[in-house]
Design a protein around this nucleic acid. Structure first.
Lengths: 235, 235
DNA sequence: ATCAATATTGCAGTCACTCTAAAATTTGGT
DNA sequence: ACCAAATTTTAGAGTGACTGCAATATTGAT
């Protein structure tokens, strides 16, 4: 045994605190539970709680932050011939079918999401995590593609892709919140994912192009001149 | 006079508080200034400060939040024949030359930025603002293009574009922070902007495509075949 | 001047979080 | 089993943002 009594007790105490906290949060919402209550429930002092968790939010996100470099793995383990985007496309589509927790597509994710959406503090923390994840993925992409330090492309690409997957995941959660079953959501989500990944790959250059004619501008027929004049005056 | 004494005094008090706050923040950093100090400097009680500003962060972002629907205007006022992306391309490139405050490209923006980057609280608030701006722009785009309520494309496009402009703006600020002059930054920023907008328009489908050769796939040496064979076989 | 509306203030309190010093507990050596 | 050092836990006091309430000061209209 390389784990003494001391280590075990610490691990147990930490776990007890986290478990009690999660129970209270799920029952009454994040903001309506005080750290003092968590401490009482775990039978420790408030100071001990802060000894293990730096902030109240950490009580909730304990293990969540482990997922901070998950997207990097998708890039690193992409198959030969696969671009970064297609790697994520395949990963995400698989995730839909398997109810992958990495994108919040698993069964119990909605209870979790409800809690987050109701708490400004947790929302802020989630955005912070998103930011960190963006940075991680950008670094990995830069590394994989050998981009120079002044090159903004890795950060750009990371942001674009994660923006898309987050949007899709959030949309699914939102539909779940509204009462739809995963069964009903899945096929639509697949379509939407395909559509957004197509846009990622092929670009949004033509999106929302305003018609060149102005006669009957917002009369009724808006579907003429779809690809009329793609200008390319940029360097 | 449609403004009585009462109204004027309120306006003046509010302004005095905001000014004093900004002065203290710029001098000593956001986190190292207490609301009580701001109150003392403005010669009012702490309660009066909270009477005008809901949170400490509001003291800093007072007028900033006015800019929440600025991007929407770019879309609405785009010229005939212009897509959403090209509208932003032109707007941003103009902004670079004119040192536009809307993108934080004006002369005094770096002092501001330093303050924000050093304060976790302000960073969180900025991200919150970004989120709101995203939502606004998405709504405008949906409106302009007549997208249905279930269509994720407007949100997607809004996120992609704002992600790009924010990245560019942040990069410029970061270089400013490092001591470069706007004069030196401007031309490079233009190039980077052109590059990212090109990617927005044409897509990132081929970015980071891994070579198809497989010989020493995951043996020991990890640095084989960097850019070997880029081919376009997607479809 | 006086009254009603409202702006400002003082005060007490909550909650997250910090710091410090005093227990309580575990560990290693004898 | 016992002691001493290391470490964990705790109590207690304090800070700072923010809330709620009741008292007070100021303004607007008569």
């Amino acid at each position: 045994m390389d784990e003494g009594l001391r280590e075990r007790k610490k691990r147990e105490t930490r776990q007890r605190i986290a478990d009690m906290a999660m129970g209270l949060f799920l029952a009454r919402g994040f903001d309506d539970v005080t750290v003092a209550e968590v401490a009482r429930a775990a039978d420790v002092s408030v100071n001990t709680v802060f000894n293990y968790f730096g902030t109240k939010e950490d009580l909730f996100l304990d293990r969540q932050s482990e997922a901070e470099d998950v997207p990097s793995r998708v890039v690193r383990e992409r198959e030969p011939g696969e671009s970064v985007v297609t790697a994520f496309r395949h990963d995400f589509l698989e995730a839909i079918d398997q109810g992958d927790w990495r994108y919040g597509l698993n069964e119990g994710a909605d209870a979790f999401a409800r809690l987050v959406f109701e708490s400004p503090a947790l929302l802020a923390r989630m955005r912070e995590m998103d930011h960190a994840i963006n940075g991680n993925l950008a670094a990995t992409i830069a590394e994989e593609t050998g981009a120079g330090p002044g090159d903004l492309t890795p950060q750009f690409v990371a942001g674009q892709i994660l923006g898309a997957t987050r949007l899709l995941a959030r949309h699914a959660l939102w539909r779940r919140q509204a009462g739809d079953s995963w069964q009903r959501i899945r096929p639509e989500l697949r379509e939407q994912a395909e559509a957004l990944f197509d846009l990622l790959e092929k670009g949004i250059g033509d999106y929302g192009r305003r018609p060149l004619v102005q006669a009957a501008q917002h009369g009724g027929a808006a579907e003429d001149h779809e690809h009329e004049h793609v200008e390319g005056d940029h360097g």
